[in-house]
Structures are given as C-alpha cells and as structure tokens.
Write a protein that binds this DNA or RNA. Structure first.
Length: 594
RNA sequence: GCGCCCAUAGCUCAGUGGAUAGAGCGCAGGCCUGCGGAGCCUGAGGUCGGAGGUUCGAAUCUUCCUGGGCGCGCCA
C-alpha cells in the first residue's frame, strides 16, 4: 500500500543552531582537557537546554555533572577545567560561568538571538527539519468503535489524540497512516441487523420486538424508515434477512461514525473491515501460521451442549477443525499470564484470533511500527497481543499501545453522571455541537492521555480569557490585526525575510525571551513525538501566548521609529507562525479574526 | 487475589535524573484615553499520598504500603 502522507519538503536551516553550537564547543573543550590530562574518561552524553531561572543564564549544560562519576572528581572542578578550554569562534556568548552544583551557564549575545530569529523567518517551516526522520512506516489505529452505536467522548478523545500524533509525526518527516478497524463481524453486528429488521417490520405494520440484548437507539429508527422507503415491502422478503439488515446497518453506522469524526476534523487513510478478513481466509491463515510455529494446542473435547452454536462461523470453516475442542495460543510462553483461546469448541474464531490476523495483516502491508490507541477497558489485552506478535516472530518494538483514559464531563462545576437523560451528552456529536471542534480538539489533547480527563464543558464553550484555546487563538488574531493596521499605515507589507541588521533593535528582555521560546519549539515538538504526548504542545502554546500578551501589554509594536517597528513586527510574525503551526498540529484553527 | 493507569497549591493540571517544583482557575490587592481589556502586574498558598532503596543529585528510577479508576470470558 502506498503512503498517503507525502513527505514534507522542508528547507534546511542555514547556520548552526545555538544549542548545537554550544554542544560542540563543550565537546571540543572536553577533548582539549583530555589532551592536557585534566580529564581522562570519554565525553559522556550531556544536555544543553534553556535555563529555567534567569539567574542561571539563558542556556545551561549539565556536562560537568554527567562527567563527574567517570572522572571521580567534583563537578565544579570539571566545569572550571572545561571553561578554561571553551572555544567561541563565533563569539556567540557574552558569559559562560559555573553555577550551583556545577552547571555551566551561558548568556548569549543579542546578535546570536537575532540570528536565531532570522533563521526562523527564513525557513519555510518552524520545525526546520532538524531531526532525522526514522524512515519507518508508521500506522496509527484508533477509535475502531463497534458499529452498533454512536461515537462517545472517549472515542472523541482517542480520535483527537491519534490525529494529533499523526500530524506531529508527519511534521517531523515521518510517514504515518491512520486506520479505523471496523468490527463488522460476529454476534454484536448480527444482533444489530436483527434489531433493524424488527424496526422495519414494526414500521411495515408487522409489530416485532427487538431481540434480547438488541439495540434500541433512535438512530436505528431513522435507518429503518429509510430502508422501508427505499425497498418497500420487498424489504421483508429477503431470504438472509438478518445478514441483509446487518450489512445495511453497518454501512449506515460507519457512515455515521465517519461524519462524526469529520466534524471533529479527523479523517482516516483507511477503514478496515474485519469481516473481509474472515471471508477471504486471512483469519484462518493467521491460525495456520501459529500452528506451524507450534504455539497452539487443543483442549479436551467439550460436552455436547455447545454444539447448537456450531456452523455459524462466517467464511470458510477452519482447516482441520476438531469438533468439540477449543484451540489455544500459548501466550504464557511470551509473557502473558494465561493462555488465550483462538478457536472456540464450536469452531468459531475468537475476537482475539481476528485481531492477531489484523495486526499480522498490517505488518504484511509493510508497516514497521503499529501504534494502537485503545480505551481503558482494553488494557488487559496488551499482554496477549504482544505475546501473539512475539509468537509470530515479530520484533517487540513493532507494536505499541496507548491507553486513552476515561473522560468525565463537568458542567456547572459538577461531574455529569452517565444516565438516560445525560447520556446524549456523552456522544461525540452532542459535545462537539456545543463546544465546537476547536475547543473539543484542544481540550482532549491538553492533558496527558493516560490520566483521567475532567472536561469542563462550560469552560470549553466560553469565549473568554479563561478558555485556553480562545486565549491562544486570540493571541494569533491580535497579531494578524497588528499587521492589518501596519499595512494600512505603511501602504505596503513587511518584507518576507529581514536582514540581520533589521533585527538589531530587539533588545528588551521580553523580546529576547520570546525568541528563546520560539527557538525551543522544535524541541517541544520532538519531545511530544517521542513520548506520543501532544499535550506538551498545548502547554507550550499557552506559555507562548502568555509571553506575547505580556509583551503586547507593555510595549507598542507600531512606533515612531520605523526600524524598531519593523524589528518588532518580524518578531511577532515569527510568534504568529509558530502559534499557527502548533495549533495546526493539534487540529485547531488559527483565525485572523475572532 | 492478580494485572494496568493515576496520586504535585483550595480546584484542574504541567514538570525528557538536575539549581529556589511551575501554569490556569479561585482568593487578596493594583493597572484601561493607545496596534483588539477576550488583557496586564503584585501577593498569599506545597513535608510532590506515605516509608525504604539506587544516585554527587529523585516529583521523576526502584521496592513496599495507602487511596482512587479500570481490567481479569470459549464476549467484542
């Protein structure tokens, strides 16, 4: 299968980034110290990062602390030795000194920050493609809800997470496809078909009750009316009526899901049918693979009472089926705490076997990394799925599961209870209808996915400063508005890329602080990608918007001094670019006007 | 009983082994003739659930305990 994610072409940034510059200067200093015999061990891995506390300079490194153990020397002594040997060919920093436990702190020249800003503005993309993509083909499977009812808020959370991860990974040059697994085989969808049939018959004047355990939702009434209108009484004459209605119902429900997800701005490269896998033999093929590898075994024949369910399996029967005995996979040999059934004693495959076949199918399609997002009620399945793939000889790092935890809805400061009355609110459509897609997307990825989420519906709906998504969007719109004013007065837009000299007037702490924040953006995105945590971007954007608002509050951008005006506008344009880019990674719009 | 997730300010939550643990809301007090006040500033508020361990250094890693959520089917 082809990748639909076109590898983004990103302009490589000219010049060396400051952190890289300091990193290599420190490595050089380390090498010199070794030549002088002041240090003996290999250079350890170390970090160069932003200082949190302004008293600790602008950037800092833990190299001396990292080296302390191997050198058996106090970190401060090592730091002093490194400082004496620290090169600065580019004259990029004005101060480098040792603080605290042995950190080396750096204060950069303003010009260094101006360079950074110019590099940002010159690049076509704020990520700058500084990281090397893994080259892996990645597939993220999420939502994959049963087609028996409407999507709910947990599905919405999983959708927001999966889609944002896709956008983040793609922004870093990775190849990613999104997939939705449709559970259109088995008992539940058959029951769905029977429920629809009962509705159609009732509407046609043949009162029929919905079967035991069937589905009663309003949405099925709509479908039944549609079927009757289209097929008339012929609808009642089908020989395989349950299958007929099942197929119609599944198609209807999948379309409903697709529409709900599109409303949230989430689309998939592929919708994968479980039933097709049963029908064309891929499920039994997976079983045969496991058999051939010697990882399956049979239980003793079961009692005769199970027999009445036999023969209901979809697709061809299992090869060499042994009537009356179940077939299990020895998952305990691969870290599971219990062996798991693959084929029931009546000959039907379990959901687990189909799932194994599905994951095998994904790997056969050429994916190197499968990322599944599951609900909290499925975490018990991780061990068995990993065991199954290990049994098939697949590498352990080819499959990972993220558990998106439950969602509590908060309204009027109180937790909404799941009930018939409130139930509607737990549906994706109802929630998004109230909050809008932007707020929903932002709130769903504003927290770590593995914590329970308290979703404050009132806050998400409010158009005030308290609502973080509006606060961030507002910062973006405000910048757009500044440019409108500037262009009206100036009669011409600002040139696209400034000269270094044009940024010279930027000297305020707020200004250099904003540049520092912008420079750290690519690291934030990389960290979010590595940990599969989009919420890091949400946090970053809120901090950046805050810095912008503070700057705006205290300083006018458009002033008498034309050179100063231009410099400030270049700065806020870079801020605007990063805000727009970051919001885009979360699937949230960046409006120019609100 | 076993397994997974969680526990950080009054509330909701950030915090890739680093320095004095941060933000928003709430609370107390201040700031508006301006490019969008849908804003900004100051302050109070913490034994990072508890106890050991590893480490030069632990909210972060590890063990145990406590409390909360979820899961332990030949259901999906």
């Amino acid at each position: 299968m082809r990748s639909t994610s076109a590898r983004r072409r990103v302009q490589r940034c000219p010049g060396l980034q400051m952190k890289d510059y300091i990193h290599s200067a420190l490595r050089e200093a380390h090498a010199r110290c070794r030549e002088q015999g002041r240090l003996s061990a290999e250079c350890p891995p170390f970090l160069v990062e932003e200082s949190r506390n302004p008293e600790h300079g602008e950037l800092c490194s833990n190299i001396a602390l990292a080296a302390a153990k191997a050198e058996r020397k106090a970190p401060r002594m090592i730091a002093d030795a490194l400082l004496e040997n620290l090169p600065d060919a580019g004259r990029r920093f004005t101060r480098a000194d040792v603080g605290g436990a042995g950190f080396i702190n750096f204060v950069l020249t303003s010009t260094s920050w101006h360079e950074e800003l110019r590099r940002l503005l010159a690049a076509s993309d704020p990520i700058l493609n500084t990281s090397a993509p893994s080259g892996k083909r990645i597939q993220i499977e999420f939502v994959s809800a049963n087609p028996t009812g409407p999507l709910n808020v947990v599905n919405a959370r999983a959708a927001s997470l999966g889609d944002s991860l896709t956008r983040i990974l793609r922004a870093l040059g990775e190849t990613v496809d999104r997939e939705f697994y449709i559970n259109d085989a088995g008992h539940q969808v058959k029951l769905l078909g029977a429920s629809v049939e009962a509705r159609v018959r009732t509407l046609a004047g043949e009162p029929t009750s919905v079967p035991e355990g069937g589905y009663h939702g309003e949405y099925l009434r709509d479908l039944a009316a549609e079927i009757l209108a289209r097929e008339g009484h012929a609808a009642l004459e089908h020989a395989d009526s349950v299958e007929h209605y099942r197929d119609l119902a599944v198609r209807f429900m999948v379309a409903l899901h697709r529409r709900s997800l599109e409303q949230l701005g989430v689309t998939f490269e592929r919708w994968f049918s479980e039933r097709e896998m049963h029908e064309d033999g891929r499920v039994w093929a997976a079983l045969e693979r496991l058999r051939a590898l010697g990882h399956t075994y049979r239980t003793d024949a079961a009692s005769a009472e199970d027999d009445d369910a036999a023969g209901e399996a979809e697709g061809p029967p299992p090869p060499t089926a042994a009537a009356g005995s179940a077939e299990l996979l020895r998952t305990t040999a691969f870290g599971d705490d219990k062996d798991r059934v693959l084929v029931r004693s009546d000959g039907r495959p379990t959901y687990f076997l189909a799932d194994i076949a599905y994951h095998l199918d994904k790997l056969n399609r050429g994916y190197d990394l499968l990322l599944d997002i599951w609900g909290p009620d499925h975490h018990g399945h991780i061990a068995r799925m990993k065991a199954a793939l290990a049994a098939l000889g697949k590498p352990a790092d080819a499959f990972d599961v993220l558990i998106a935890q439950q969602v509590n809805l908060i309204q009027n400061g109180e937790r909404l209870k799941m009930s018939k009355r409130a139930g509607k609110f737990f549906e994706l459509d109802a929630l998004v209808g109230v909050t809008g897609a932007d707020a929903a997307r932002f709130f769903f990825v504003n927290r770590r996915f593995d914590s329970h989420l308290d979703f404050d519906v009132d806050l998400a709906t409010s158009q005030t400063q308290d609502n973080p998504v509006y606060y961030i969007q507002y910062a973006h719109a405000r910048i757009a508005s500044v440019f409108t004013v500037y262009e009206e007065r100036q009669g011409a837009p600002l040139a696209l890329v400034p000269t270094l000299g044009a940024l010279e007037p930027l000297a305020l702490p707020e200004e250099l602080g904003l540049i520092r924040a912008l420079v750290s953006y690519p690291d934030t995105v990389k960290a979010a990608a590595a940990a599969y945590e989009p919420h890091r971007i949400a946090t970053f954007l809120h901090e950046l918007a805050t810095k912008l608002q503070q700057y705006y509050q205290h300083h006018r951008f458009i002033v008498e001094d034309e050179a100063l005006t231009a410099a400030r506008l270049y700065l806020v344009r870079a801020v605007q670019n990063v805000l727009r880019h970051g919001l885009g990674l979360l699937g949230v719009s960046a409006p120019d006007r609100m």
